[in-house]
C-alpha cells in the first residue's frame, strides 16, 4: 500500500505544511507497510525536490512552468501520475491551494475526497478520517465508501512534524501538458499592505473578536491595550466588518504571532485563528461561551462578558500602576 503526498510550494519555497503531510504519510506507511511517495510540480522545482526528498521513499519531479498557478493544468498532470502509480491514499494540505486542486482532482479520478481532516488512521484495514465540524464543537468520523484510491486534505498546523527519513529516491517525469491551458489566467500575486503597526513584533497583544458586538466598544479594549503597553489585534470577522484594518488580523489568512501575552477577548477560537496565536507564551481568554474552542488553547480563561470585565481590569491595572 502506498501513500502519495503533494508537496506545496509558493514563490520558490516549500511551504511548512508539506512537512506535516510527509510526517502523517510516514506514520501511515509505517503502520500499514508500503512506500511514501511525494510529488512536486512547477517551474524550477528540482532544488525544492532535493530539499525534501530524504523524507519520502521516492519523490516525483515534474518540471512545467504551465502548471504554476494553473489549477486545470496542474490537475491534468497530477491525474496522470496517480493513474500511473495507483496510490491507496493521496494527501494534500487543506490550504487555499489544496482546496483549489483537490475537489477537481477527485472528480477527474472519480475517487472519494474528505477535506479538512484533523485525524487519519487505519483500523481493520479501513481508513477512518476525522473532521472537526460545527466550529470545533463536534468531531466526525468518516469512512470511504467507494473507490480504490482514497483522498484527504489535512488541516494545516494540526499534525506534528517528525522528520523521519525514507529512501530519498528522485524520479523526473515529463509533463503531459501539450499546450497552454488558458481558461483561467494567472495575473499575479498581490502582497498585503504594510500597516502602521506590526503586530508580529508586539510583546503584548489585546485581540478582539465577534464578542465585541459593536464598533463603538473597541475603544474600551484600546484603552486596555494602551494601559498594558500592548497593541490591538483581532480575529477575521472584525476585519470583514471593516472595524479594524487587515494588518491587525491574527490567523491563517492574517498574521502569525507569538507574543508574551495574548489576551483573547470575545474570540471563539476558529481553527484558522488558533493557528495564528497558539504559540504565544501566555494566553488568557475572556468569552461568554464556556464551550468556545479558545478555552482549549488558552492557559487561563474567564467565562464572562468582556464588555464588563475589560473596563474593570483597565481600572485596576491603572490603579496598580499608580495611574489616575
Amino acid at each position: 500500500m502506498s501513500v502519495l503526498i503533494v508537496a506545496e510550494h509558493r514563490k520558490g519555497e516549500i511551504r511548512d505544511v508539506t512537512f506535516e503531510l510527509l510526517s502523517k504519510g510516514r506514520e501511515i506507511v509505517k503502520a500499514m507497510g508500503g512506500d511514501l511517495y511525494a510529488v512536486i510540480l512547477g517551474k524550477d522545482v528540482m532544488k525544492l525536490a532535493k530539499s525534501i526528498a530524504e523524507f519520502a521513499d521516492k519523490i516525483f519531479v515534474i518540471e512545467d512552468e504551465r502548471v504554476e498557478n494553473n489549477a486545470e493544468a496542474y490537475v491534468r498532470v497530477l491525474k496522470r501520475l496517480v493513474e500511473r502509480i495507483s496510490p491507496k491514499l493521496i494527501i494534500m494540505a487543506n490550504s487555499s491551494f489544496g482546496l483549489d486542486i483537490a475537489p477537481c482532482l477527485a472528480m477527474e479520478l472519480d475517487i472519494p475526497l474528505i477535506t479538512d481532516c484533523v485525524g487519519l488512521k487505519f483500523s481493520d484495514d479501513k481508513l477512518i478520517a476525522t473532521k472537526s465540524i460545527y466550529g470545533g464543537k463536534v468531531l466526525a468520523d468518516y469512512l470511504f465508501d467507494y473507490g480504490k484510491t482514497y483522498f484527504v486534505t489535512l488541516r494545516v498546523g494540526e499534525f506534528k512534524v517528525t522528520y523521519e527519513k525514507g529512501r530519498g529516491e528522485i524520479e523526473v517525469l515529463p509533463s503531459i501538458v501539450k499546450e497552454e491551458v488558458v481558461n483561467k489566467r494567472f495575473i499575479g500575486f498581490i502582497e498585503p499592505e504594510k500597516g502602521e503597526v506590526d503586530i508580529t513584533a508586539a510583546d503584548i497583544i489585546i485581540s478582539i473578536g465577534r464578542g465585541i458586538k459593536e464598533k463603538g466598544n473597541i475603544k474600551i479594549t484600546e484603552e486596555l491595550a494602551n494601559t498594558l503597553g500592548g497593541v490591538l489585534a483581532c480575529s477575521r470577522p472584525i476585519v470583514d466588518y471593516n472595524w479594524l484594518p487587515k494588518d491587525r488580523q491574527v490567523g491563517s489568512s492574517g498574521k502569525i504571532v507569538k507574543p508574551k501575552l495574548y489576551l483573547a477577548l470575545g474570540i471563539s477560537g476558529a481553527f484558522q485563528h488558533i493557528i495564528g496565536m497558539k504559540d504565544s507564551s501566555l494566553i488568557i481568554a475572556i468569552n461568554k461561551d464556556p464551550m468556545a474552542p479558545i478555552f482549549r488553547v488558552a492557559h487561563y480563561g474567564v467565562v464572562g462578558d468582556l464588555l464588563k470585565i475589560v473596563p474593570e481590569l483597565t481600572r485596576m491595572i491603572k490603579e496598580s500602576k499608580g495611574i489616575k
Binding site: 463536534v138 466526525a140 468520523d141 468518516y142 469512512l143 470511504f144 473507490g147 482549549r296 480563561g301 474567564v302
Partner: peptide, 18 residues
Amino acid sequence: KVKLERLYLPPPVKAAEL
C-alpha cells in the same frame, strides 16, 4: 462516496484554568 460513521464531542483536553 464517503460515509459518516459517527459524531462525537471532542475529548476534554488540558483546558484553560478558569
